[in-house]
Design a protein around this nucleic acid. Sequence first.
DNA 1: CTATAACTTGGAGTCGACTCCAAGTCAATA
DNA 2: TATTGACTTGGAGTCGACTCCAAGTTATAG
Lengths: 166, 166
Amino acid sequence: MKEEQTFTIKQTAKETGISEDTIRYYEKIALLPRAERKDNGHRIYRQEDIDTIQLLSCMKKTGMPLDEMRPFLAVSTDADPAEYPELVELLRSHRENIVSQIASLQQVVDFIDMKLEKGKYRRDCSDEIQDDVSDNRMEEPKSKSISTVQMNYFSVSAGMGTGNHL
Amino acid sequence: MKEEQTFTIKQTAKETGISEDTIRYYEKIALLPRAERKDNGHRIYRQEDIDTIQLLSCMKKTGMPLDEMRPFLAVSTDADPAEYPELVELLRSHRENIVSQIASLQQVVDFIDMKLEKGKYRRDCSDEIQDDVSDNRMEEPKSKSISTVQMNYFSVSAGMGTGNHL
DNA sequence: CTATAACTTGGAGTCGACTCCAAGTCAATA
DNA sequence: TATTGACTTGGAGTCGACTCCAAGTTATAG
């Protein structure tokens, strides 16, 4: 049998684009399982670990909170998700979230395109919010269309280089 | 001339799904321009303000940091973006970011679908990272494919109800 | 006249997600 | 033998984005 290739934390960081510190942090908060160690205590990673971290990175890019990523890691390649009905439900609901997030993003792309090719269509951007019901409950955000999103304070911070930062 | 409808901060919050506190916060950090006030000092909002806040909400859903949203607000409906070449560049680059974010999200959707319909294809998820080059510079994250993303520690936190929280 | 509600302000506190640091181990090299 | 580099740990600090609070104002209802 051929030995599987292993990686140091540094290599893993480079491979995944996630910093060493962050990888250790993910392990610390148990988002990642405790990595195997060599005799000297150094962590070792395998391709499958890198795949996992890449999935995390993927979700991270989309602004998903770390806690919400946990269920995804619970779904192993081999395990049949159908055996865990609640997990399936969770995945489905997450899928819905993500699909609506894609819609939001597409709206922003549309907005930019409209701006870039100067004046065009415009559609809705909001969708049901069912997550963070803080103190003042927003019953139903009325899902009104953003008709030709307009904001007319170009003067306020225009001229590029918003005055101070960047 | 007919008077334009105005909204209180409470109504605006309900309409947009963004809390009153947060709307005030956005004004405080000048993400939103100072709202008009009534004689008694209460803020008043118009449809266009609501549109603006909805655009913010839209970008927020995608995990975009508040600072990055500023340029979008600088683009008024009427102003011709072509007059501000740097702004156009910024919009273009943001558009690229968002498009690649959509790709990331689509990957996650694919991942879920794969899990749900039990074993299927799998493609890449990572794309070039050119933003946060922290201490240890990740030159090129190697853009390797996530081949059949696998993680085999179902046991670690499975059984639903990850042990402790929720 | 008083109480309630809807707002205002400034500022403090919280929480998530890192990011940094100090002290220590271990292995290879000058 | 001393130093360098790659790692380890625990814990402290930072930063963004809220979220909450106390004190004050104004308008309406009982």
